[in-house]
Design a binder for these strands. Structure first.
Length: 220
DNA sequence: ATATCGATTATCT
DNA sequence: GATAATCGATATG
């Protein structure tokens, strides 16, 4: 492969090593912004990570790891850099990556991506016809949506090593560096909802969250 | 634009 | 039996 040529149409994407994920969920969530999620295909699906949330492990009531090391959550307690995929509301898959160290169960939830390549295939996976720029946002803006666009399921992808391009699903760096990052409370959760653990690229159109917290009944 | 609600299943109490 | 790290449809201002 040609290296260092100044006029590539597409920058090369370098896999993030294991060490990238061997840190706190806060740090990893922040540093993942701007990186690329890749689904290896004949024509790869790629999209930039624009929104993440940190889950702090066993002592975070909102984290699945709070239930302890079970068959469902085992990946969270394993080494960093592996995919934790869960199924929720009887409908949706969501993707996390494990971080910290083996035995310590931090993770980062992928909340939104900005599609780069494979857009037509993502649209097919989402059953969306692309007529306006607004339709593009429907592809990967939200944790359930991005999982569907990348055909991520628990049986296929849970436990996948995301640090190597020999995996079907992996994460890489194309040299992009975020301009401004915003931090807000996590959304869509009911426990420990006030901590500021949601990270996103300020002003990015693909960030989720137009939909607020699940409807809360007024206090009686 | 915001608000409410049903879908549908793995996991936990 | 209840709940959930969600989404898409429908109703209404």
């Amino acid at each position: 492969m040609v290296q260092s040529s100044p006029n590539h149409a597409f920058a090369s994407i370098i896999p993030l090593g294991r060490a990238f994920f061997a840190g706190s969920p806060r740090r990893v969530a922040r540093q993942l912004l701007g990186k690329i999620l890749v689904r290896a295909e004949n024509s790869p699906l790629t999209a930039r990570i624009v929104e993440t949330e940190a889950y702090l492990g066993e002592n975070d009531p909102a984290a699945h790891a709070a239930a302890g090391n079970t068959p469902r959550t085992a990946v969270l307690f394993g080494p960093p850099g592996f995919a934790y995929v869960y199924f929720i509301y009887g409908n949706h898959y969501c993707l996390n990556v494990s971080c910290e160290a083996e035995g310590k169960a931090g993770s980062v939830l992928f909340r939104a991506l900005e599609p780069i390549t494979g857009i037509e295939e993502m649209a097919r996976a989402r059953n969306i016809s692309l007529r306006t720029p607004r339709d593009l946002i429907q592809l990967t803006s939200g944790p359930g949506r991005l999982a569907q666009a990348f055909a991520i399921t628990r049986s296929r992808d849970n436990g996948c090593d995301l640090t190597t391009s020999s995996s079907s699903l992996w994460i890489g760096d194309d040299g992009f560096r975020p301009a401004k990052i915003s931090i807000t409370p996590r959304i869509g959760i009911t426990k420990a909802a006030h901590h500021r653990l949601r990270y996103f690229l300020a002003g990015n159109r693909f960030v989720s969250g137009t939909r607020r917290h699940p409807a809360r009944k007024p206090n009686l």
